[in-house]
Simulated scan of single mutants.
Amino acid sequence: MLVVNTSATLPAAVNGRVGGERVVVHFSTRGEDGRWAVELRAPGASGAGVPRPGGPAGCVVRLPGGRELVLEEPLGGGLSAGPDQGAVPGTASPAGPAGSPLAPAAGARLWWARVPERVPELLRRYGRPIRYAYTERDQPLSAYQTVFAVRAPDGSGSAEMPSAARPFTAALVAELVSRGVQFAPLSLDTGVASAEAHEPPYPERFAVPSTTAWLVNAARAAGGRVVAVGTTAVRALESAADADGVVRPAAGWTDLVVTPRRGVRVVDGLLTGLHEPEASHLLMLEAVAGREALRRGYEAALERRYLWHEFGDVHLILPDEERNTPDCSSN
């Protein structure tokens, strides 16, 4: 069984100005009170944004069409989950920013901002996909959508593409189904990652429907293998599982960080891209496959010059006892 994330990618980057300074606003996460977590970046020579200090509180950012947003307070979520610290427990709380998993903390690069108009409409009219310096050019939003993407009625979605599913095509899905592979959908709306600082993931909105919970539990009871397509699918599915690995329907916010110490309770394998050495996602990969298998897999990827990041290659990671090394397969 393959568990897939159906969250659609938003055109989450919008040009703006702070006084006379040009900025790029990355819209990351919608709070329950209508505010959005945003990141301000400076335009880069390559067309991608470069780091820029956020704030201060009260800062007004002028947006296209005469609109404005106002930065109100920094956003927390710098969750600490090193190899010896275990996991931060997952939640399914419907709470909003104040007193929730997204409570403010001083010094964060992301800020809660008040926006006078529905952000999805603003993004549809003026937005473009977020891109970073390792990409060579702008691409249309369709290049950032996976075959599993489903547009949400309220316009919510992911600030960045759940990219592990990008190599899938409709033809490939049909072929896998014809061979007896089941697909189970869930959603997790990704926020804006820190391409430079490699911060641990902060809380994100997710939903595991009852049909997916039933399918996963049935597959496990029958001795089947549950493979998550992407780290986002792992985070959502593990957030909906109890200590015995039974998955229950869940929706809300999750602050779960999967580490080797916490381990995985439901997922038997992971299809994912290649992550840089400082990336917090590597802790999740190690939790699935073990450190030695992960090391051998990355050595093979470097030797064969596989590609990193959203438009790079993906590889299948299985536990050490089932395979001697993770597979790396080209897009």
Rank of each mutant, 00 (worst) to 15 (best):
Q145I: 03
L176S: 02
V227F: 08
E72Y: 04
N331Q: 12
A113S: 03
D255K: 11
A207R: 15
F311T: 00
D320Y: 11
R291G: 12
A279P: 02
V18K: 00
R220F: 09
R118F: 11
R67E: 14
D313W: 08
Y126G: 04
P162K: 01
G263D: 05
G273T: 09
M1L: 15
G99F: 02
V24K: 03
G54K: 05
R62F: 02
S156F: 05
T190Y: 00
V208R: 07
T325Q: 13
H309C: 02
R235H: 07
E278D: 12
E73P: 01
V314T: 13
P64T: 06
T212Y: 05
R262G: 13
P200K: 02
T325K: 11
A236Y: 04
G58P: 01
G90D: 05
E299K: 12
P326K: 13
A293C: 13
E73R: 14
S239F: 03
A57H: 04
R22T: 14
W111A: 05
G290H: 09
M284H: 02
S280W: 04
S163L: 00
P53W: 04
Y134D: 10
A293H: 11
I130S: 05
Y144A: 05
R17G: 03
D138F: 12
V88W: 07
V216Q: 00
A250E: 01
D154W: 06
E276P: 05
A240W: 04
Q139R: 15
A13L: 12
V23H: 00
H281M: 06
G263A: 08
L283M: 15
S156D: 11
A87V: 05
A251P: 00
V119F: 01
V18I: 06
G58T: 08
G19K: 00
L71K: 00
V61S: 06
G312H: 03
H198C: 08
V177Y: 04
A42R: 14
T211H: 11
A159T: 08
E68S: 15
T91N: 01
T135V: 13
V229I: 13
R205Y: 03
A251H: 07
D138I: 09
Q145D: 01
L186F: 07
A174K: 10
V3C: 09
R35N: 06
L2Y: 13
P116W: 02
P326Q: 13
A300E: 14
V266R: 09
V229F: 04
L141I: 14
F206K: 00
I130Q: 07
A236P: 00
G49A: 11
V247C: 04
